[in-house]
């Protein structure tokens, strides 16, 4: 058992670029590396597709933590993807701070295509950190009724 496994359950969302990070995620799955529980992955073609609204929406709909899994800055298949990700994370973190939500609940991380162990380790660390912060609150959170886990 990993540490913190007994703590409260939290809702984790990973927004994952289809290229390097998803290759890592896929390889980790093929190698049967254990993933944190309550972690959901949303696969997108490029982190550059994700804007401030979509990250905010995840929190509005009840996520306790969101991690953006990006390619390395120079690896983007389309060009500006990771740069867009950095800028959006920077701004949404400021919005979360205004709303009184811990900025650490939004994380971004870049990976090369071969770094499956690093990705899994990052996800566990992310899950531990969010569990330490705890679920935002029970029941009616941020205006939306959350379904039971």
């Amino acid at each position: 058992m990993r540490k913190n496994a007994g703590k409260k359950r939290v809702r984790l969302l990973g927004i994952c670029c289809n290229w390097s990070p998803f290759a890592c995620y896929n390889a980790a799955g093929m190698n049967r590396l254990a993933m944190p529980p309550d972690f959901r992955l949303m696969r997108v073609m490029c982190i550059g597709r994700i804007n401030q609204a979509l990250i905010l929406r995840a929190f509005e709909y009840g996520a306790d933590g969101v991690i953006l899994l990006e390619c390395l800055d120079d690896d983007c298949r389309y060009g500006p993807g990771p740069g867009v990700g950095h800028e959006n994370v920077r701004r949404v973190r400021r919005l979360l701070h205004l709303l009184g939500i811990d900025q650490e609940r939004l994380v971004e991380c870049s990976f090369g295509a071969h770094e499956k162990e690093v990705l899994v380790e990052t996800l566990w660390r992310f899950a531990d950190e969010i569990r330490t912060l705890g679920p935002m609150t029970e029941g009616n959170v941020l205006g939306v009724k959350r379904p039971a886990l």
Partner: peptide, 24 residues
């Protein structure tokens, strides 16, 4: 517009337990 980000944070503000840092 803006994929509804504006409406998102407005709806998030309907949480009674919210403690904002809006005056920094």
């Amino acid at each position: 517009a803006h994929d509804g980000a504006v409406h998102s944070w407005m709806r998030m503000m309907t949480a009674p337990e919210l403690r904002q840092n809006r005056l920094d």
